[in-house]
Amino acid sequence: MKRIKIFVGILGMDQHELGAIAVAQMLRDAGMEVIYGGRFNVPATVVKTSLEEDLDVIGLSCHSWEYLHYLPDMFKMMKEEKIDVPVIVGGSVITPGDKKRLLEMGVAAAFPSGARNEDIIETVRNLAQ
């Protein structure tokens, strides 16, 4: 079975990193290859990484509202570059209302706080296929 390759990073100036680090470790422990993008990403850096690394999934950790404004740009750039990689987001700031809007926007899955590790892993595996 091909090893799943997933990007984990944070957009903009949001520096809350606890979630990203924990999820990256959890996915590594589940046997995936994690490209850890850390803080200070913009849509262009994520798209560049996706092109260079041939990612299976893009994972964004969100603990400020910046991602809500970056995501439409990112999807537009991905479309222009013909990148068809599922994007998932996770973080405590994601409200029930946000989740609905994110799924409408084209996000493949959104994990608010309290999501079970097994559910995240299973979702990533399904999306990577």
């Binding site: 903009g12 100036m13 949001d14 200070f40 913009v42 509202w65 910046e66 404004h69 970056y70």
Partner: peptide, 20 residues
């Protein structure tokens, strides 16, 4: 977050974080 990082609001990376 831009202010805390010595970054002015007209820096390209600051935009979506200004005052939030």
């Amino acid at each position: 977050s831009p202010t805390m990082a010595f970054m002015d609001p007209d820096h390209p990376l600051a935009a979506n974080a200004i005052g939030t």
